[in-house]
């Protein structure tokens, strides 16, 4: 699978590995502050609200609402995305608070609306990486 996959692959690091490990197990994990209970994404060394370093990983519901989106029609790089267009990249607001970029799948681009409820749909793309995509909520 790794040899055929041409799209950018995440390079997990010390901060982000737990997130990607979670995706591999089909769990959407967010950093949550033990001091002020704020959830944050992307992961960072401190809680950006209260600057506490006491952070824990917590499973999110996977429910979100579409905040903004684009429909990519011109593929760049062409050799990687020519068979993918049109595809949708979106910012979604997770029920737990943080915003996340993702792809919206399982629907036509024209049907996407501001505030549309979506739910996580994990897609394994390599031995190591599973991406959290979103689809219209059932």
């Amino acid at each position: 699978m790794d040899n055929e996959y041409l799209k950018p692959l995440p390079a997990p690091d010390h901060l982000t590995a737990p997130f990607w490990d979670g995706c591999k197990a089909n769990k959407l994990l967010l950093q949550r502050c033990k001091q002020c209970s704020t959830s944050q994404f992307p992961p960072g060394p401190l809680c950006t609200k209260c600057r506490s370093a006491e952070l824990e990983w917590s499973e999110a519901s996977g429910k979100a609402k579409v905040y903004s989106w684009i429909v990519v029609r011109h593929p760049i790089p062409a050799d990687v995305y020519k068979d993918e267009v049109p595809y949708v990249v979106a910012l979604v607001d997770l029920d737990e608070g943080p915003r996340m970029s993702t792809n919206i799948v399982d629907c036509v681009p024209e049907s996407i609306k501001d505030g549309m409820p979506v739910e996580v749909a994990f897609k394994q793309v390599s031995d190591a990486i599973t991406l959290p995509l979103f689809r219209p909520a059932k």
């Binding site: 692959l9 995440p10 390079a11 760049i76």
Partner: peptide, 25 residues
């Protein structure tokens, strides 16, 4: 670049790569 380090690991893997794609959002 196609290797997604840092915060790019949460954007580029979704095919969100170029500046027109960024500003369209």
């Amino acid at each position: 670049q196609m290797a997604a380090y840092g915060v790019t690991q949460f954007t580029a893997p979704y095919g969100w790569i170029t500046y027109p794609q960024a500003m369209a959002m």
